[in-house]
Simulated scan of single mutants.
Amino acid sequence: MAEFRRAYGAAPWHLLLLLGCFAVTGWIALRLAGEPTAGRMLLWFVGAAIAHDLVLFPAYASVDRALRVTWRRGASPSLLNHLRVPALGVGLLFLVYLPGVLGLGDGTYAAATGMAPRARFGQWLAVSAGLFAASALLYVARRLSRRTR
């Protein structure tokens, strides 16, 4: 077992899990092979991966590094984490629901659902405010519980 771990670099269950993931991916690829829009799906997937790796990741990593550098000047790291988590949630919601938030893709939405599209920017803002408010309440509760101990 130790020799396998040294040769492979991880536990045997890791290899089994990885093979299972490849099997599921292969099954999905076979299911999509006959799909007429498979090329478009692949293009969107590759484009999203490239956009994330070359644009989004450097952008939010730079913002996070700048925040950490500024935060070292005395504020608690816990507060920074209570800002990071809702910001991540808000950003992901924005990316996933971008057309709906900005009111784009009217024809596509109407064709797919049969309903008239409407901009959901206000709802996105409300969810964003809720996430930050919940994080702030949790931060205050944690600080108060530390004081009572």
Rank of each mutant, 00 (worst) to 15 (best):
A2M: 15
A7M: 08
A11Y: 04
H14P: 00
L15T: 03
L15Y: 07
L19V: 06
L19G: 05
L19P: 03
G20D: 05
G26S: 07
I28W: 07
I28R: 09
A29F: 00
A29S: 15
L30H: 09
R31T: 08
G34Y: 01
E35A: 14
E35R: 08
P36M: 04
A38K: 15
A38L: 12
M41H: 01
M41Y: 06
L42E: 06
L42D: 08
L42T: 12
L42K: 09
V46A: 13
G47L: 00
A51D: 09
H52F: 11
V55D: 03
V55F: 03
L56Q: 10
L56W: 07
P58A: 05
A59M: 13
D64L: 03
D64P: 00
L67Y: 01
T70C: 12
W71P: 07
R73I: 15
R73P: 13
A75D: 14
S76K: 07
H82C: 01
L83P: 02
V85I: 08
V85P: 00
V90P: 01
G91N: 11
L93V: 06
L95V: 15
L95E: 11
V101W: 10
L102E: 09
G103I: 06
G105T: 14
G105W: 03
D106L: 14
A111Y: 11
A111T: 03
G114C: 04
P117E: 04
R118S: 15
R118D: 15
F121L: 12
F121S: 14
S128K: 00
S128R: 01
A129S: 00
A129E: 00
A129H: 00
G130W: 00
A136Y: 06
L137K: 03
L137R: 04
A141R: 12
R142E: 07
R149E: 12
R149P: 09
